[in-house]
Amino acid sequence: MSLSERLHPGINLAGTDPESHEAAEEVLFGFWIFLMSDLVLFAVLFATYAAMSVQGIAEGPRPAEVFDLTAAFVETLLLLFSSFAFGFAMLEMKYRENRRGVLLWLLLTGVLGAAFVGMELHDYYVMITQHAAPPQASGFLSAYYLLTGTHALHVSSGLVWMAIMAVQVAVVGFSTPVKLRLMRLALFWHMLDVVWIGIFTFVYLFGVAS
């Protein structure tokens, strides 16, 4: 088998491990399907938001009155950079099997992710205290908090997962199951970027522009 065949994109566990490629196929394919189902959930939340942000304002504030575009932009950068860092963690895993390198990149990913969640919580705090915009204020705000909150909850559970993976990398090392878990976490993390790009565009940019 040529090198390029062994290094086909997507499910490389390592440069020279065709056996575990086979093992990878089923779990990773399964995880893609899980992500698809998760995206359906987000699609439903987006659709709900689309309806509620127009018709569900009631006597509450309008989107443009409560959103802070600067904060949302910084959050976007944090999340994208965290994905970037995760990419390096995966490269370290694939080509060097370097525990220290993987752990350091994971740490950076985690810190950026945690900063993202922290900023989002701060956003909520500002909205509730300064704009009188808690989720109970209107249908629009209910949908907003549910959509962004579900995303934040995903990011948070990703952080917990990441912490556990750090422990496993440190304790177990790069066994095939650990590698597969890291790869799935990476997929999960990147998917959350995609969803966030949707939120940033659709909720924040559209919201402020309208």
Binding site: V44, G56, Q136, G139, Y145, L146
Partner: peptide, 29 residues
């Protein structure tokens, strides 16, 4: 199944936390 999960969660948020997804008034529908 995802739309059902979403719908039950929204109904739960309405009931437990005073959200307004499906309530009469306050933008619920």
């Amino acid at each position: 199944m995802a739309p059902l999960t979403a719908a039950t969660v929204m109904l739960a948020l309405d009931r437990y936390a005073g959200f307004h997804f499906f309530t009469n008034g306050d933008g619920g529908n």
